[in-house]
Design a protein around this nucleic acid. Structure first.
Length: 95
DNA sequence: CGTATGACGTGCA
DNA sequence: GTGCACGCCATAC
């Protein structure tokens, strides 16, 4: 299935990320790639991480966003915190 | 405008 | 199986 998602808009792509991430249900997680894809730029997962890293909104469960490998990656609030949160939600993380 | 950075991903040795 | 390097997009300076 080849979809022409060549419509990358250099708008506050950050807002889209926030929206997508904030839509993540409890006990569920998304990968940076998935978030970027849902944000409209499946190739901007890099920017996703960047934006989230700088972001610090309590409404953004950034801890629910992990890498494609299943690893945490990082967390501005403390990797440990992220792991604990995900574990509490029932998400298994790769040590 | 150009350069540098970043919570990444994939490929190759 | 592990490690290294490159590529990608967006943002900040």
């Amino acid at each position: 299935m080849q979809k022409e998602f060549l419509k990358k808009q250099t708008t506050s792509f950050q807002s889209k990320v926030y929206k997508v991430v904030s839509k993540i249900p409890k006990g569920k997680i998304l990968t940076y790639k998935k978030v970027a894809s849902l944000a409209g730029s499946p190739r901007a997962w890099r920017a996703v991480g960047n934006v989230l890293n700088k972001n610090r909104n309590p409404k953004i469960p950034c801890h629910r966003v992990i890498r494609s490998d299943g690893t945490i990656g990082g967390y501005n609030r403390g990797i440990k915190n992220k792991i604990a949160l995900l574990k509490k939600e029932g998400v298994f993380i790769k040590t």
